[in-house]
Amino acid sequence: MARSRSELLTVPEVLNELGGVSRRTFYRWRELRIAPRCIRLPNGELRVRRDALDDWLQDRAEGAV
Rank of each mutant, 00 (worst) to 15 (best):
C38A: 15
R37A: 15
D54P: 01
V21M: 14
L8C: 12
E13A: 11
R24L: 10
L8F: 11
R50H: 12
G20F: 01
E7Y: 15
R24H: 11
V65E: 10
L41A: 14
F26W: 14
V14W: 00
D51K: 10
A2T: 11
D54Q: 14
L18K: 00
S6P: 01
I34N: 09
E31M: 14
L41F: 10
R23N: 07
T10C: 06
A2I: 08
S4E: 13
E62L: 04
G63W: 08
D51M: 09
Y27Q: 10
L41P: 02
A61Q: 09
L57F: 00
A52M: 06
S4M: 12
P42I: 12
E62I: 05
S22M: 08
V14Y: 00
L18H: 01
V65C: 06
A61L: 13
E45Y: 04
L41M: 15
R23W: 04
L57S: 01
P42G: 10
G20S: 10
Q58Y: 10
L18F: 03
L15N: 03
E7M: 14
R40F: 05
L53Y: 04
T10H: 08
S22W: 07
V21L: 12
S4T: 13
V11W: 00
L41H: 06
R24C: 05
L41Q: 13
G63H: 04
L8E: 13
R28Y: 08
A35T: 04
S4V: 07
R47C: 02
N43H: 07
L9Y: 02
P12I: 04
A35Q: 11
R23A: 05
R3N: 06
A2Y: 08
W56L: 03
R28T: 08
L32W: 11
D54W: 02
L15I: 03
S4C: 14
V21F: 03
A52N: 07
L32S: 07
R49D: 00
L15Q: 03
V48T: 03
